[in-house]
C-alpha cells in the first residue's frame, strides 16, 4: 500500500533533480525551471504529509501552506525573469558561465 513515506521519497527525488539542475544547468531559464521543480517537490511533500495523523487528529493544513508556496514561487519567477531580461543584454543565450567577472 502506498503511504506518505512513498510520497516523501518521491518528493526527495524531485528535490534532488531540482538541485542537480540548479548546479549543472548553464542556461538561466533552465535554472529557474529547476527552482520551480524544487518548489513543486515542497508542495508534493506538504500535501502528502498533511494526511498524516497527529496526536489522534488529522491535520489538513498542508494544502493551505502549498497555496502560500505557489504564491512565493510566482513572485520569485517574476523577479527571476526580470533579471533574465537584464542579463539578455550582455549574453544572448543567458548562460550563467558568461558572468564570472566578480571573483577573488
Amino acid at each position: 500500500m502506498i503511504n506518505s513515506d512513498h510520497a516523501t521519497f518521491f518528493s526527495l527525488i524531485l528535490f534532488g533533480i531540482g538541485i542537480l539542475g540548479l548546479l549543472t544547468r548553464k542556461n538561466l531559464i533552465m535554472i529557474l525551471i529547476s527552482v520551480e521543480i524544487m518548489l513543486n517537490a515542497v508542495n508534493l511533500n506538504l500535501i502528502a504529509l498533511s494526511r498524516r495523523d497527529i496526536q489522534g487528529m488529522t491535520a489538513v493544513g498542508g494544502e493551505a501552506i502549498a497555496l502560500f508556496v505557489i504564491l512565493l514561487a510566482a513572485c520569485e519567477a517574476a523577479v527571476g525573469l526580470g533579471i533574465l531580461i537584464g542579463l539578455k543584454k550582455y549574453s544572448s543565450d543567458v548562460s550563467v558561465d558568461d558572468f564570472d567577472e566578480l571573483r577573488d
Binding site: 548546479l23 550563467v96 564570472d100
Partner: peptide
C-alpha cells in the same frame, strides 16, 4: 571564489 555561480551554489549544497 571562482566567480561562477555554479560553484557558489555547489558550496551551499
Amino acid at each position: 571564489q571562482s566567480g561562477s555561480i555554479g560553484t557558489y551554489l555547489g558550496y551551499a549544497v
